[in-house]
Amino acid sequence: METLIVNVLLTLMMLAVVVLARTRNLFAVIVLSGLYSFLMATAMVALDAVDVAMTEAAVGAGISTVLLLGALHLCRSEEAKPAHKPWLPLAVTASAGLLLVYGTWDLPAFSDPEAPIHKHVAPRYLADGPRETGVPNVVTAVLASYRGFDTLGETTVVFTAGAGIIALLRRRRRTTADKEAP
């Protein structure tokens, strides 16, 4: 049953992406990408990743939709018709996809408890995390305590991106009054 729910959600996401790729109105594209993010958040709940689902719903469907709309407000809202049919990109991506599908042949099956991912460090986090940190949510314990360096790096990346955006957009656009001034 759980597998069925996940697979239905994945199918809906694939449909949303196909429609998105064929749409030329950028407003519709942005709304579709918000829809895609919500489907992704729901799929994450079905995959037991509640923290990720909450982040994806707030970030992917909320903030990034607002930012894309804000950027669209400053640009033109219709995509130009492509000059020629995109057969070459289609062939490249299709063949790369087929190669990747070939690569999945030997990967462990969905929800295989014996898969290597469940055998390495995760059992230790689950067994000792709550005792060592006193935090029952293992995701928070790993995020803030075991992998604190990692999170420090991620926070610094967010800070750097913010600084870059401030540097790019802080200066006002040159107006006609500025151009006339020497």
Binding site: E56, V59, Y125, V139, V142, D150
Partner: peptide
């Protein structure tokens, strides 16, 4: 839990780079 931690931070970094 480990992939959740990695992806959680990746989402926020993703939106920061999207904004950039």
């Amino acid at each position: 839990p480990l992939p959740h931690v990695l992806i959680l931070t990746a989402i926020v970094v993703g939106v920061a780079t999207l904004a950039l």
